[in-house]
Nucleic acid binder design. Structure first.
Lengths: 229, 229
DNA sequence: TTCATATTACAATGATCATCGAAATGTGGA
DNA sequence: TCCACATTTCGATGATCATTGTAATATGAA
């Protein structure tokens, strides 16, 4: 009789606040030691271990050992996609502490969304690239224009190589803080990678927030006409 | 300290099997009376009422009264998107009863995915349209080709009108039973609407499964070269 | 008004499951 | 070999929450 509720199980994996916190931490697309995830979720290592075992059994995270550490990370893009979509459904975050509001400000300004840039910076990059005519917004995705090729080459990104990857190329990712789509897919991923490589952005410890370096401020202004206050 | 686990709340709304069953029932994109949803989930009306109130408070479903009935349905596409993505993460369904396997067969053959056709039929329609050169698969979405315009007009669908709707036009929707994308977006929606109008398909009671009528078999064969056994 | 039906409100019950202390296992370094 | 640290296993505790019986409210029909 009950044919449908198969969606309940994966949802239950995310419905626990501690697990959600750990999954969100892994949304930076990297692998983290169990103890770090425990700390980020505010729980004891035993509890974290219990949760991580569950998530692994559910096929949502992957683990690799290295020495006495065990590193955990999201198993697939699908998992990241679900979490991001759930964030979109979540009610606006209420600010409880100064500390939290600080972190929130950072996250809203610039953060990773699995493997690409999101937050205000993500949107401004998108706008700048559209303005410059290097990408174009279509109904279901973005597209690289004719001029785009030269631009990305100048940025140090090989568009044709990126296009060949067996995943979506230039898709839209709906942003929970901005409620408007930014650039995701393999091109979004290549973009983030390059911005980190150029040291325009730096990952902040223990959070998905991204720090814009001084070099980054200059570079973003020169290349994208984005002013960082 | 805990900045992330906001995703937990919407996930918790879906993590209960009864709620998941009701949401899945609403995935046909229509509104259902509370009692029907209770029956589909296999719970008493009181329990259903409790769950529906929760879901409404969470902003996931909408309600309108009509006489002594209250009709509930999904509030936005986002909710449908989350449920569909969760289904993708779910482990393969194990078959427990003959009845269930029957329903499963129907669902796999043809069903609605919120507002468009999914299941085997969805994939075969996609393939047929690509084969016929009326749509083209791109990296992040489908696109209507030059010849496409005439074809859809022949089908009784005004592509330009559909394109103008303020939502994605021709997007991909990853199918949990087929694990390959079918046509969604406003064009997918228009397509389902038209197939129901032509009486090629009929909604089956109390499930998302679609029945292919005899007329439909003939029509699908003539127009799409799809053989229905 | 009276009855039937749809739905919600309330209160009690019971099961599930997250949590953590204690202890075990595993790994690296001295 | 001994110690320190990372992680898991086990067992007990406690809180949350789905469920339903009973009762109330609301709407429509006779």
């Amino acid at each position: 009789m009950k044919a449908g509720p198969i969606a309940a199980h994966p949802a239950a994996m995310i419905s626990d606040p501690s697990r959600a916190a750990m999954l969100t931490a892994m949304m930076d697309g990297r692998f983290h030691p169990a103890s770090e995830l425990a700390y980020m979720a505010g729980i004891k290592p035993q509890t974290a271990s219990y949760h991580l075992a569950k998530l692994e059994e559910a096929g949502m995270i992957a683990m690799h050992k290295q020495g006495r550490h065990r590193y955990y990370g999201l198993k697939s893009h699908d998992v990241a996609a679900v979490v991001e979509t759930l964030l979109l459904l979540a009610p606006p975050v209420e600010i409880k502490s100064l500390r939290q509001s600080e972190e929130n400000r950072h996250l809203r300004r610039a953060r990773t969304c699995y493997d690409h840039v999101a937050g205000d910076l993500g949107i401004r990059l998108r706008d700048a690239m559209i303005e410059a005519g290097v990408i174009r917004e279509e109904a279901d995705a973005f597209a690289v224009t004719g001029e785009g090729g030269a631009f990305f080459e100048h940025m140090g990104i090989d568009v044709e190589a990126v296009r060949k990857k067996r995943r979506s190329f230039c898709s839209k990712c709906l942003d929970w803080s901005e409620r408007t789509p930014h650039l995701a897919g393999s091109l979004g991923s290549a973009m983030l990678e390059r911005l980190l490589e150029l040291r325009w952005l730096r990952r902040m410890e223990g959070t998905r927030a991204l720090h814009i370096t001084d070099e980054g401020s200059r570079g973003l202004r020169a290349t994208f006409h984005i002013e960082i206050p």
